[in-house]
Design a protein around this nucleic acid. Structure first.
Lengths: 193, 193
DNA sequence: ACACGATATCCATTATATCGGAATTTCTAT
DNA sequence: ATAGAAATTCCGATATAATGGATATCGTGT
C-alpha cells in the first residue's frame, strides 16, 4: 500500500505487555508470534496480519477493539475534496428495468443516512421492504406523476413537492405518469442519540 | 503462522460491501485495496494486514470492532405521510439573485442533516462561512460547470458527479458555465455520540 | 567503573500478503 | 439459446510480513 494512515497500535500493545510484566520472549511463547515480529510491531515498523493481531489480543486477554487507542474507531478521512465520478457511483437496477437508484451518499454513511437519485419508468413502482425501526424517508419529486403509499396512507406528488413518511413499514413509490419520473430520496435511519 | 483460529471476517466484510451495493472494483477504488485481495479476504483465503483492514473499515464506514461481531437497532413513533408543497418549501435567495436554495429537509432535522436544491446563476458563486466542526458537505451536480473550492483544494464537477468535502472551513461553489447550474447539496453535521 | 544476565533490536532467509492482468464465471439482454 | 458485458476468481510477479539466530542495548549488582 502506498499510504498508511491507520492508527498506531504498537504503543498500545507495548503498554499492555508491560503492564503484564511480559518480555518479548514470554509474549512470543504465549502468542506464537516471534519476538522479532513483536518488536517490529511495537515500534510501528511492521504491519501485522489479522491472524497475528488476533493471537496477540488472545495472549494479552484484551478485546480486539482495544487495539485502537481512545476508542475512536472510525475517523473522517477526506482532507481535500473527494470526487466520485459517475462511473464510480453505485447503481441499483430492478431486474425488470422498472426503476433505477443512483446512490449519491457515501458508502461510509450506509445505515445512517443515505440519499439516492430515483428513476421510475412510466406505470412502474418501486416497492421497498420495511427498513430498520425509526427509519424515515423524504422524497422530493423532480417530475409530476409520483405517488407514495404506505400502510398509513397515500400521497401524490407534484414537481418540487416533498413527502416525508415512515420507512420502517412497507412502502412503495409509483410513477402514474407517462414519462420517466425522477426524484430525490433521502433515507434517515434512527440515530438514537 | 502454523495455526489460525482467528474469527472469520471475510463474510462480515462481504455482507457490508453488498449492503452498500459495491462491487469489488468500486470498493477497491474506495479503499485502495486491490480487487483480488478483496476477493481472497472475503473468501477467507487471505490473512489481511492491519493496514488493509483499517482501510476497509474506513471505506465501508464501519467500526473496527464490527469486524468481529455485529449488532444494532431501536425504535420510535408513528405518523402518516407528511406533504410539503412547493409553496411551503423554504427558500433562501441571495440579495443579488446570484443563487437560490430550496430547503428540502425537515426543519426538525436542522443542525443534524440538511439538504438543499441549489441553483446558481452563470458566473456567480455561493459562498459559505464555516459550519460547525466535523461538518461535511456532499454536492452532486445536476448540470455541468460547477466548481467547488475550499481552503484545502478545488474540484470541478461534471453532471452526475459528486464532491465530498469538509464544510467546517470556508467553502464556495461557483458556476463557471453559461447556463444556470443546479445541484443537490447535503450538509451532514458531526454526529459522534 | 566493570561484568553478566536479561531484554530488545538487527540481519539474512523464508513464507506469504498484495497486486495487475488474464481467465472464468455470473448476469443481462436479445 | 446465444452473445456481450459485468463481476469475480485465478495466476504469475513482486513487495513485505514473519522467523531464528546474531548483535546490541539495558539493567542491576559488586
Amino acid at each position: 500500500m502506498e499510504v498508511n494512515n491507520a492508527p498506531k497500535i504498537g504503543p498500545v500493545l507495548q503498554k499492555e505487555r508491560k503492564e503484564r510484566h511480559l518480555t518479548l520472549d514470554r509474549l512470543a511463547a504465549l502468542s506464537g508470534v516471534s519476538r522479532s515480529m513483536l518488536s517490529q510491531i511495537e515500534r510501528g515498523e511492521a504491519n501485522p496480519t489479522f491472524a497475528v493481531l488476533w493471537s496477540l489480543t488472545q495472549a494479552l486477554g484484551i478485546d480486539f477493539s482495544q487495539l485502537i487507542a481512545g476508542g475512536i474507531t472510525h475517523q473522517r478521512k477526506a482532507e481535500a475534496i473527494e470526487l466520485v465520478t459517475l462511473a464510480l457511483t453505485p447503481e441499483i437496477k430492478s431486474p425488470d428495468g422498472a426503476w433505477r437508484l443512483r446512490i449519491l451518499s457515501s458508502p461510509a454513511l450506509a445505515g445512517r443516512v443515505e440519499w439516492y437519485e430515483v428513476e421510475i419508468a412510466p406505470g412502474s413502482k418501486l416497492q421497498s421492504a420495511p427498513h430498520a425501526p425509526g427509519t424515515f424517508e423524504h422524497l422530493t419529486a423532480y417530475t409530476d406523476g409520483l405517488l407514495v403509499e404506505t400502510e398509513l396512507g397515500r400521497q401524490e406528488l407534484l414537481t418540487g413537492e416533498t413527502a416525508r413518511y415512515r420507512a420502517d413499514i412497507g412502502h412503495e413509490i409509483t410513477n402514474g405518469g407517462t414519462e420517466t419520473a425522477r426524484a430525490l430520496m433521502v433515507v434517515l435511519y434512527d440515530q438514537e442519540a
